[in-house]
Protein backbone atom coordinates (compact mmCIF):
# COMPACT_ATOMS: atom_id res chain seq x y z
CA UNK A 1 0.00 0.00 0.00
CA UNK A 2 1.57 3.28 -1.04
CA UNK A 3 -0.51 5.19 1.45
CA UNK A 4 2.26 6.13 3.84
CA UNK A 5 4.57 7.54 1.22
CA UNK A 6 1.80 9.84 0.16
CA UNK A 7 2.13 12.18 3.11
CA UNK A 8 5.14 13.97 1.66
CA UNK A 9 4.10 14.39 -1.95
CA UNK A 10 2.93 17.97 -1.67
CA UNK A 11 4.93 19.56 1.09
CA UNK A 12 8.26 18.41 -0.32
CA UNK A 13 8.20 21.19 -2.90
CA UNK A 14 8.05 24.97 -2.80
CA UNK A 15 8.94 27.35 -0.02
CA UNK A 16 5.36 28.02 1.10
CA UNK A 17 4.38 24.93 3.10
CA UNK A 18 5.13 24.95 6.81
CA UNK A 19 5.05 21.56 8.55
CA UNK A 20 4.01 23.07 11.88
CA UNK A 21 0.94 24.84 10.47
CA UNK A 22 -2.50 23.22 10.54
CA UNK A 23 -3.36 21.02 7.57
CA UNK A 24 -6.04 23.39 6.32
CA UNK A 25 -6.98 26.78 7.62
CA UNK A 26 -9.74 28.94 6.21
CA UNK A 27 -9.20 32.44 7.56
CA UNK A 28 -11.86 35.16 7.47
CA UNK A 29 -13.06 34.28 3.97
CA UNK A 30 -15.36 36.66 2.11
CA UNK A 31 -17.04 35.70 -1.16
CA UNK A 32 -19.73 37.54 -3.04
CA UNK A 33 -21.69 36.75 -6.20
CA UNK A 34 -22.23 39.74 -8.44
CA UNK A 35 -25.50 39.06 -10.21
CA UNK A 36 -27.96 41.06 -12.25
CA UNK A 37 -30.14 41.47 -9.19
CA UNK A 38 -27.34 42.83 -7.05
CA UNK A 39 -24.44 41.63 -4.93
CA UNK A 40 -25.12 38.47 -2.94
CA UNK A 41 -22.83 38.28 0.07
CA UNK A 42 -22.40 34.53 0.16
CA UNK A 43 -19.56 34.22 2.65
CA UNK A 44 -19.07 36.83 5.33
CA UNK A 45 -15.92 36.02 7.25
CA UNK A 46 -15.76 32.24 7.45
CA UNK A 47 -12.92 30.74 9.49
CA UNK A 48 -12.18 27.15 10.38
CA UNK A 49 -9.26 24.79 10.55
CA UNK A 50 -8.87 21.06 10.08
CA UNK A 51 -5.97 18.93 11.31
CA UNK A 52 -4.79 15.65 9.86
CA UNK A 53 -7.01 12.77 10.93
CA UNK A 54 -9.79 15.09 12.06
CA UNK A 55 -13.39 15.23 10.84
CA UNK A 56 -14.99 18.65 10.66
CA UNK A 57 -18.69 18.64 9.83
CA UNK A 58 -19.98 21.79 8.19
CA UNK A 59 -23.68 21.91 8.93
CA UNK A 60 -26.19 24.23 7.36
CA UNK A 61 -29.34 24.60 5.31
CA UNK A 62 -29.34 25.26 1.59
CA UNK A 63 -27.94 28.67 0.81
CA UNK A 64 -25.93 28.92 4.02
CA UNK A 65 -22.64 28.94 2.09
CA UNK A 66 -21.29 25.54 3.09
CA UNK A 67 -20.69 24.35 -0.46
CA UNK A 68 -19.32 27.70 -1.63
CA UNK A 69 -16.69 27.55 1.12
CA UNK A 70 -15.66 24.10 -0.09
CA UNK A 71 -15.57 25.18 -3.71
CA UNK A 72 -13.38 28.15 -2.82
CA UNK A 73 -11.00 25.87 -0.92
CA UNK A 74 -10.82 23.54 -3.92
CA UNK A 75 -10.42 26.45 -6.33
CA UNK A 76 -13.42 25.39 -8.39
CA UNK A 77 -15.68 28.34 -7.61
CA UNK A 78 -17.26 29.80 -10.75
CA UNK A 79 -15.68 33.21 -11.19
CA UNK A 80 -17.61 35.18 -12.35
CA UNK A 81 -20.16 35.46 -10.81
CA UNK A 82 -18.11 34.60 -7.71
CA UNK A 83 -15.55 37.06 -6.32
CA UNK A 84 -13.26 36.38 -3.40
CA UNK A 85 -13.16 39.71 -1.63
CA UNK A 86 -11.10 38.85 1.40
CA UNK A 87 -9.44 36.25 3.56
CA UNK A 88 -6.99 33.41 3.09
CA UNK A 89 -7.01 29.66 2.64
CA UNK A 90 -3.84 28.10 4.04
CA UNK A 91 -2.85 24.54 3.26
CA UNK A 92 0.15 23.60 5.39
CA UNK A 93 0.53 27.33 6.00
CA UNK A 94 0.72 28.22 2.32
CA UNK A 95 -1.91 30.70 1.16
CA UNK A 96 -3.61 29.05 -1.79
CA UNK A 97 -5.45 32.21 -2.78
CA UNK A 98 -2.07 33.83 -3.50
CA UNK A 99 -0.68 30.77 -5.28
CA UNK A 100 -0.22 30.49 -9.04
CA UNK A 101 -2.72 28.51 -11.10
CA UNK A 102 -0.05 25.90 -11.66
CA UNK A 103 0.52 25.46 -7.94
CA UNK A 104 -3.23 25.25 -7.31
CA UNK A 105 -3.52 22.45 -9.84
CA UNK A 106 -0.74 20.60 -8.03
CA UNK A 107 -2.59 20.84 -4.74
CA UNK A 108 -5.95 19.89 -6.25
CA UNK A 109 -6.28 16.13 -6.21
CA UNK A 110 -3.00 15.29 -4.50
CA UNK A 111 -3.33 17.75 -1.62
CA UNK A 112 -7.05 18.30 -1.31
CA UNK A 113 -9.60 16.15 -3.12
CA UNK A 114 -13.37 16.40 -3.19
CA UNK A 115 -16.36 14.16 -3.67
CA UNK A 116 -19.78 15.40 -4.64
CA UNK A 117 -23.39 14.70 -3.80
CA UNK A 118 -24.63 13.51 -7.13
CA UNK A 119 -22.18 10.89 -8.37
CA UNK A 120 -24.06 10.35 -11.61
CA UNK A 121 -23.54 13.92 -12.76
CA UNK A 122 -20.04 14.18 -11.29
CA UNK A 123 -18.83 11.23 -13.38
CA UNK A 124 -18.45 11.55 -17.14
CA UNK A 125 -21.01 9.27 -18.81
CA UNK A 126 -19.00 8.65 -22.00
CA UNK A 127 -15.85 7.26 -20.36
CA UNK A 128 -15.46 4.07 -18.37
CA UNK A 129 -15.05 4.39 -14.63
CA UNK A 130 -11.56 2.93 -14.99
CA UNK A 131 -10.52 5.51 -17.56
CA UNK A 132 -11.63 8.37 -15.32
CA UNK A 133 -9.51 7.09 -12.44
CA UNK A 134 -6.55 6.30 -14.69
CA UNK A 135 -6.59 9.70 -16.38
CA UNK A 136 -5.29 11.47 -13.29
CA UNK A 137 -2.66 8.82 -12.65
CA UNK A 138 -1.33 9.02 -16.18
CA UNK A 139 -1.27 12.81 -16.39
CA UNK A 140 -0.29 13.68 -12.85
CA UNK A 141 1.89 10.71 -11.98
CA UNK A 142 3.14 9.87 -15.46
CA UNK A 143 2.06 6.26 -15.12
CA UNK A 144 1.78 3.98 -18.13
CA UNK A 145 -1.67 2.82 -19.18
CA UNK A 146 -0.96 -0.62 -17.81
CA UNK A 147 0.22 0.58 -14.40
CA UNK A 148 -2.64 3.04 -14.16
CA UNK A 149 -5.16 0.27 -14.89
CA UNK A 150 -3.58 -1.87 -12.19
CA UNK A 151 -3.79 0.97 -9.70
CA UNK A 152 -7.39 1.73 -10.68
CA UNK A 153 -8.36 -1.87 -9.93
CA UNK A 154 -6.57 -1.61 -6.57
CA UNK A 155 -8.48 1.57 -5.77
CA UNK A 156 -11.85 0.05 -6.67
CA UNK A 157 -10.92 -2.89 -4.48
CA UNK A 158 -10.06 -0.51 -1.67
CA UNK A 159 -13.53 1.02 -1.75
CA UNK A 160 -14.99 -2.51 -1.70
CA UNK A 161 -16.44 -2.69 -5.17
CA UNK A 162 -16.94 -6.38 -5.88
CA UNK A 163 -15.29 -7.74 -9.02
CA UNK A 164 -13.14 -4.62 -9.45
CA UNK A 165 -11.31 -6.13 -12.44
CA UNK A 166 -14.52 -6.34 -14.45
CA UNK A 167 -16.09 -3.18 -13.04
CA UNK A 168 -13.19 -1.01 -14.16
CA UNK A 169 -14.32 -1.43 -17.77
CA UNK A 170 -17.90 -0.41 -17.10
CA UNK A 171 -19.56 2.96 -17.57
CA UNK A 172 -21.10 4.99 -14.73
CA UNK A 173 -24.66 4.13 -15.76
CA UNK A 174 -23.91 0.45 -15.17
CA UNK A 175 -23.21 1.19 -11.50
CA UNK A 176 -25.88 1.53 -8.80
CA UNK A 177 -26.08 4.73 -6.75
CA UNK A 178 -23.97 3.41 -3.89
CA UNK A 179 -21.42 1.92 -6.27
CA UNK A 180 -21.07 5.23 -8.10
CA UNK A 181 -20.38 7.01 -4.86
CA UNK A 182 -17.74 4.37 -4.09
CA UNK A 183 -16.21 4.88 -7.53
CA UNK A 184 -16.04 8.61 -6.89
CA UNK A 185 -14.33 8.01 -3.56
CA UNK A 186 -11.83 5.75 -5.36
CA UNK A 187 -11.22 8.52 -7.86
CA UNK A 188 -10.66 11.11 -5.17
CA UNK A 189 -8.10 8.83 -3.47
CA UNK A 190 -6.11 8.18 -6.65
CA UNK A 191 -3.51 10.86 -5.91
CA UNK A 192 -3.37 10.10 -2.17
CA UNK A 193 -4.77 13.41 -0.87
CA UNK A 194 -4.14 14.57 2.68
CA UNK A 195 -7.50 16.27 2.87
CA UNK A 196 -10.85 15.13 1.56
CA UNK A 197 -13.90 17.34 1.21
CA UNK A 198 -17.13 15.37 1.00
CA UNK A 199 -20.04 17.57 -0.13
CA UNK A 200 -23.29 15.84 0.92
CA UNK A 201 -21.83 12.42 0.02
CA UNK A 202 -24.84 10.40 1.14
CA UNK A 203 -27.79 12.75 0.63
CA UNK A 204 -28.98 10.98 -2.52
CA UNK A 205 -28.59 7.50 -1.02
CA UNK A 206 -30.85 5.19 0.98
CA UNK A 207 -30.11 4.77 4.68
CA UNK A 208 -28.66 1.27 4.38
CA UNK A 209 -26.30 2.42 1.62
CA UNK A 210 -25.58 5.64 3.49
CA UNK A 211 -24.36 3.57 6.44
CA UNK A 212 -22.04 1.60 4.13
CA UNK A 213 -20.55 4.75 2.57
CA UNK A 214 -20.04 6.53 5.91
CA UNK A 215 -18.28 3.42 7.29
CA UNK A 216 -16.05 3.34 4.25
CA UNK A 217 -15.13 7.02 4.50
CA UNK A 218 -14.34 6.66 8.19
CA UNK A 219 -12.20 3.59 7.60
CA UNK A 220 -10.21 5.24 4.81
CA UNK A 221 -9.76 8.37 6.85
CA UNK A 222 -8.36 6.52 9.85
CA UNK A 223 -6.11 4.36 7.69
CA UNK A 224 -4.60 7.36 5.89
CA UNK A 225 -4.84 9.88 8.72
CA UNK A 226 -6.66 12.18 6.32
CA UNK A 227 -8.38 15.42 7.23
CA UNK A 228 -12.07 15.22 6.34
CA UNK A 229 -14.55 18.02 5.82
CA UNK A 230 -18.06 16.62 5.74
CA UNK A 231 -20.61 19.04 4.35
CA UNK A 232 -24.13 18.03 5.22
CA UNK A 233 -27.50 19.13 6.48
CA UNK A 234 -28.16 15.81 8.22
CA UNK A 235 -27.82 16.21 11.98
CA UNK A 236 -27.91 12.44 12.42
CA UNK A 237 -24.92 11.72 10.19
CA UNK A 238 -23.00 14.53 11.86
CA UNK A 239 -23.63 13.09 15.31
CA UNK A 240 -22.22 9.75 14.24
CA UNK A 241 -18.96 10.82 12.58
CA UNK A 242 -17.90 14.39 13.36
CA UNK A 243 -15.13 15.35 15.78
CA UNK A 244 -15.93 19.02 15.45
CA UNK A 245 -18.88 20.86 13.97
CA UNK A 246 -19.21 24.26 12.32
CA UNK A 247 -22.80 25.47 11.95
CA UNK A 248 -23.32 27.93 9.11
CA UNK A 249 -26.11 30.42 8.64
CA UNK A 250 -26.34 33.12 5.93
CA UNK A 251 -22.68 32.91 5.03
CA UNK A 252 -21.36 32.97 8.58
CA UNK A 253 -20.26 30.32 11.01
CA UNK A 254 -22.60 30.90 13.92
CA UNK A 255 -21.26 28.16 16.15
CA UNK A 256 -18.18 26.00 16.25
CA UNK A 257 -17.75 23.25 18.78
CA UNK A 258 -16.77 19.67 19.47
CA UNK A 259 -19.61 17.32 18.58
CA UNK A 260 -20.61 16.20 22.08
CA UNK A 261 -20.83 19.64 23.66
CA UNK A 262 -22.83 21.00 20.75
CA UNK A 263 -25.53 18.35 20.98
CA UNK A 264 -25.54 18.46 24.77
CA UNK A 265 -25.84 22.22 25.00
CA UNK A 266 -26.06 24.24 21.81
CA UNK A 267 -24.33 27.61 22.12
CA UNK A 268 -26.40 29.41 19.50
CA UNK A 269 -30.18 29.77 19.25
CA UNK A 270 -30.07 28.61 15.62
CA UNK A 271 -28.36 25.34 16.53
CA UNK A 272 -30.82 24.84 19.36
CA UNK A 273 -33.78 25.46 17.05
CA UNK A 274 -32.39 23.08 14.42
CA UNK A 275 -32.03 20.28 16.95
CA UNK A 276 -35.52 20.94 18.29
CA UNK A 277 -37.13 20.86 14.85
CA UNK A 278 -35.78 17.42 14.04
CA UNK A 279 -38.12 14.43 14.05
CA UNK A 280 -36.44 11.68 16.03
CA UNK A 281 -36.52 7.96 15.35
CA UNK A 282 -36.23 7.21 19.05
CA UNK A 283 -38.78 9.74 20.30
CA UNK A 284 -42.31 10.39 19.17
CA UNK A 285 -43.53 13.86 19.97
CA UNK A 286 -46.81 15.50 19.13
CA UNK A 287 -45.69 18.78 17.65
CA UNK A 288 -42.28 19.67 16.30
CA UNK A 289 -40.78 22.97 17.28
CA UNK A 290 -40.27 25.01 14.18
CA UNK A 291 -38.11 27.93 13.23
CA UNK A 292 -40.48 30.64 12.11
CA UNK A 293 -39.89 32.32 8.78
CA UNK A 294 -37.28 31.66 6.15
CA UNK A 295 -33.50 32.01 5.83
CA UNK A 296 -32.69 35.53 4.61
CA UNK A 297 -31.97 36.35 0.99
CA UNK A 298 -28.22 36.82 0.60
CA UNK A 299 -28.91 39.84 -1.58
CA UNK A 300 -30.33 41.52 1.46
CA UNK A 301 -28.94 40.09 4.69
CA UNK A 302 -30.58 41.73 7.70
CA UNK A 303 -28.41 44.14 9.71
CA UNK A 304 -26.98 42.95 13.00
CA UNK A 305 -27.22 39.22 13.64
CA UNK A 306 -28.49 37.55 10.43
CA UNK A 307 -30.63 35.17 12.50
CA UNK A 308 -32.42 37.89 14.50
CA UNK A 309 -35.71 37.95 12.48
CA UNK A 310 -36.23 34.26 13.30
CA UNK A 311 -34.67 34.15 16.75
CA UNK A 312 -36.94 33.47 19.74
CA UNK A 313 -34.70 35.42 22.16
CA UNK A 314 -34.01 38.47 20.03
CA UNK A 315 -33.21 41.77 21.78
CA UNK A 316 -32.58 45.26 20.46
CA UNK A 317 -28.83 44.83 20.29
CA UNK A 318 -29.27 41.88 17.87
CA UNK A 319 -30.94 44.14 15.32
CA UNK A 320 -28.06 46.57 15.12
CA UNK A 321 -24.77 44.88 16.10
CA UNK A 322 -23.23 41.91 14.36
CA UNK A 323 -22.36 39.58 17.23
CA UNK A 324 -18.65 38.79 17.57
CA UNK A 325 -17.40 35.24 18.03
CA UNK A 326 -17.63 34.53 21.77
CA UNK A 327 -15.14 32.01 23.05
CA UNK A 328 -17.23 29.89 25.39
CA UNK A 329 -14.50 27.43 26.24
CA UNK A 330 -11.41 26.21 24.41
CA UNK A 331 -12.50 25.13 20.94
CA UNK A 332 -16.04 26.46 21.32
CA UNK A 333 -17.17 29.60 19.56
CA UNK A 334 -20.60 31.14 19.25
CA UNK A 335 -21.68 34.21 17.31
CA UNK A 336 -24.52 35.17 19.61
CA UNK A 337 -24.70 38.19 21.93
CA UNK A 338 -26.21 35.94 24.58
CA UNK A 339 -24.08 32.85 24.07
CA UNK A 340 -22.86 32.77 27.69
CA UNK A 341 -26.41 32.90 29.00
CA UNK A 342 -27.49 30.16 26.63
CA UNK A 343 -24.79 27.86 27.87
CA UNK A 344 -25.36 28.78 31.53
CA UNK A 345 -29.18 28.70 31.41
CA UNK A 346 -31.22 25.77 32.80
Amino acid sequence: MPTNTAQSTVDSEGAGPDPAAPLLEVDDLYVEFRTRDGVAKVLNGVSYRVEAGETLAVLGESGSGKSVTAQTVMGILDMPPGHITGGAIRFHGENLLAATDRRRREVRGSGIAMIFQDALSALNPVFTVGFQIEEQLRIRRGMSRKDARKRAVELLDLVKIPNAKGRVRQYPHEFSGGMRQRAMIAMSLALDPEMLIADEPTTALDVTVQAQIMDLLKEIQVERNMGLILITHDLGVVAEVADRIAVMYAGRIVEQSDARSLYRKPGHPYTLALLDSLPRLDLKGAELNTIKGLPPSLLNVPPGCPFHPRCPRVEDVCKTDVPPQHRLMPGRLSACHFAEELIAGD
Binding site: V207, Q212, A239, A242, Y263, R264, L281, D282
Partner: peptide, 19 residues
Amino acid sequence: SAVPVPDPELRGQRKVIRL
Protein backbone atom coordinates in the same frame (compact mmCIF):
# COMPACT_ATOMS: atom_id res chain seq x y z
CA SER B 1 -30.61 0.41 12.86
CA ALA B 2 -29.04 2.23 9.89
CA VAL B 3 -30.78 5.51 10.66
CA PRO B 4 -28.29 7.87 12.27
CA VAL B 5 -29.49 9.16 15.63
CA PRO B 6 -28.63 12.79 16.30
CA ASP B 7 -26.91 12.16 19.61
CA PRO B 8 -23.13 11.78 19.74
CA GLU B 9 -23.36 10.21 23.19
CA LEU B 10 -24.78 7.08 21.57
CA ARG B 11 -21.90 6.84 19.11
CA GLY B 12 -20.43 3.36 19.09
CA GLN B 13 -23.01 2.11 21.60
CA ARG B 14 -25.69 1.28 19.09
CA LYS B 15 -25.51 -1.99 17.31
CA VAL B 16 -25.89 -1.22 13.63
CA ILE B 17 -26.89 -4.03 11.29
CA ARG B 18 -24.90 -3.53 8.13
CA LEU B 19 -26.56 -4.82 4.99
